[in-house]
Simulated scan of single mutants.
Amino acid sequence: ALGRGETKYTPESGLLALRKAISAKLKNENSVEYAPEQIVVSNGAKHSLSLVFMTLCNTGDEVIIPSPYWLSYPEMVKVAGGNPIFVPCDEKENYKLTPGKLESAITSGSKILLLNSPSNPTGCAYTGEELRELCALAVKKGLYIVSDEIYEKMIYDGMSHVSPSSFSEEIYEKTVIVNGFSKAFSMTGWRLGYIAAPLKIAKAVAALQSHTSSAPNTFAQYGAIAALEGGNDCVNQMVMEFQKRRDYIYQRITSIGKMTCCKPQGAFYIFPSIKAYGMSSVDLCMKLLESEGIAVIPGKSFGSDVNIRFSYACSMDTIREGMDKLEKFFAGL
């Protein structure tokens, strides 16, 4: 694309060829139909999420966020003028939101239910039936659903990803799908994400984007077309390797000390509980770094100060070395 001089502006929603490719992907893989006019390509899924919150939120509108959550969600909501409402989810329920907890969190000010499956940081993934119940309740109460599906292809043990807008026309009309190319295609630096939404919402997001960033990177969009047209063989191979790493790191962590841990069903994170050690996540992470040279993320950043987050998006050799050092560290506590 660069060699052809594809460096000029594209339409604010992105190249029509790319939006057509995304439309075909959504139909073939997710069983949902969106016309190209209902798709807006942006500068990464984070940008897409930010645009959606700025489009849907009025000042003070409540956005319900299951906790633990990806650390950027509440900041995006606050920048958009919204009010993040956290719903703590239990380890014994794989950190997944339940209909009962959702109903208790809904107020007259509730505007959006934010769902992320598979999840960063927990790795949990909702079944189709679990999602259907949550979405039916949300729509019944008049909420929009923002479905962050960036890890959709990274799902294990025979589970299948389900997009909420596939459930019914009523849910479709209240759902915004957010996805991108960073995770499934390892295109992190290309900065391309997209939304698929009811036409009215898509037009509003496109208008906002036109006034804030004009359009997504032109030549990167041609790379995204190639990724979508290239098939899923390389993606499937990557997911198989991630599952091997998941199995290994889960086995190692659950055999160490007093940590407890849910087995991740997707993404490439594992989120063990350190509650039994009586330390804050920040203190424990600092001790790990200073003592063993292991860098992990405090759960406090994700709304849970009794957890720490590991990523297994690294080589098996690195994981083995890290787990050996982790075992040594906890043996000394």
Rank of each mutant, 00 (worst) to 15 (best):
L51V: 02
G81N: 07
Y73L: 11
S67L: 03
I106R: 10
K101A: 13
G81Q: 06
S72Q: 14
E93N: 15
K92M: 06
S104A: 15
T107M: 07
V40D: 02
F53G: 02
L102R: 03
E75F: 14
V41S: 03
L49F: 01
S50H: 12
A35W: 04
Y69E: 01
L49E: 09
I39V: 13
W70F: 13
S48V: 04
T107P: 05
Y69M: 05
Y69P: 03
D90F: 04
S104I: 00
L51P: 00
A35L: 14
Q38H: 04
C57L: 11
L97F: 05
N43I: 06
N58G: 13
P88K: 10
I65K: 04
C89S: 10
E37C: 05
P74E: 11
L56K: 06
S42Q: 04
L51M: 15
S67T: 14
G82I: 04
T107E: 06
P66E: 09
S50R: 11
L97W: 02
A80F: 11
P74R: 07
P99W: 10
H47V: 12
S67D: 05
L49Q: 07
N58K: 15
G44D: 03
T55A: 10
M54V: 00
F86D: 00
V41H: 01
T59K: 15
P84V: 09
Y69D: 03
N43D: 13
A105H: 11
I64M: 11
P88F: 09
S48T: 12
N94K: 10
E91G: 03
E103M: 12
I85F: 09
C57N: 12
Y73D: 02
